[in-house]
Amino acid sequence: MFAREDDVLEAAERWRCEGRGVALATVVETWGSAPRPVGSHLAIDEAGHFLGSVSGGCVEGAVVAEAAEVIASGAPRLMEFGVADETAWQVGLSCGGRIAVYIEKVA
């Protein structure tokens, strides 16, 4: 089954209450075709476990890696992904769109 936004946000709360370091990633802007709508969430814990989706799989790996640093530093970050990126072959969006993902720590 797909994880729904309810499940993702509840997991973020539950993980934090269990004492884990947790970050929440949110799609805040999209340009062109984008796999997931603005407002979509991905919850990530300090061990790299995650639930939800910000891109249908294209950039989750990069977001999870960045989330580890956000959890460590506490400072939120904004990441942009698109086919124009030089890293496109690794983490670009095959659909040709661009997305901005905001990653914040659950403190």
Binding site: D6, L9, E10, A12, E13, R16, C17, L24, E104, K105, V106, A107
Partner: peptide
């Protein structure tokens, strides 16, 4: 996000 904000958000959704 502060945990109390997340808790309040989840309570509203529930």
């Amino acid at each position: 996000m502060e945990l109390p904000v997340l808790e309040a958000l989840n309570a509203e959704r529930a």
